[in-house]
Design a protein around this nucleic acid. Structure first.
Lengths: 104, 104
DNA sequence: TTGACATGAAACTATTTGGTTTCTTATAAA
DNA sequence: TTTATAAGAAACCAAATAGTTTCATGTCAA
């Protein structure tokens, strides 16, 4: 799973919205697309990109396709982000405070 | 600073690379663009998008434009990510372990 | 003050992206 | 075994993206 596929997947607001929706449980394509203004095929494309990014997994149940959040896929983003923690003043301050609190 | 501008900014590998480069200190446009195959105007466009996303700040020094990382801009991403922590098995396991350790 | 240097700006291009419509296929239910 | 439902697939389109080339502007230095 290339890093780029994940960043690409989360770059679109509709896809981030779908991820939020799926956080409350798996849903069929129809259930998902009914929540958006766009057509079903458009949502299908978003789901494909989310799947390619490893952020959802898909299974078939009868004629339905059920989509579930796969939050482990976000580890790539989390790792990338954490590199910058050391340059982030607020985080540094928090860390400093935590260390000082630890010393008391 | 809209959330979308940040996610857009980090969606491109060149821009993420520039952020990494700037983590070791501010740099002029020439210093940055000399590290990439693409032309200087192309890099300028990437820098503009990073600036719009609040991920870098730019200042002038003489005829130079110095670009510095502004990692606070990543807070948006960090916040968005942290929502999904609760659904992330590994994190959940860590939390569980931490709670259990706390109980001892 | 002339020339070199660092950057900005504009116009253009190819590709990708996000969307549509139309048609087909697979499965469930009457 | 029809009929309705759920989804896939393909062809198409407009706009955004990532890049280019060319030219203009501002600033430093000889």
């Amino acid at each position: 799973m290339s890093e780029q596929l994940v960043f690409r997947a989360i770059a679109d607001p509709t896809r981030r919205s779908i991820m939020t929706m799926l956080s409350s449980g798996e849903r069929s394509l129809n259930e998902i697309s009914s929540e958006y203004e766009m057509t079903r095929p458009a949502v299908t494309k978003h789901l494909k990109i989310l799947e390619q990014g490893g952020l959802i997994r898909v299974r078939s149940r009868g004629r339905q396709r059920l989509h579930a959040l796969q939050p482990e896929g976000l580890k790539t983003v989390s790792d990338w982000l954490s590199f910058f923690d050391q340059f982030w003043d607020e985080k540094l301050a928090n860390l400093k405070q935590a260390v000082e609190t630890d010393d008391e």
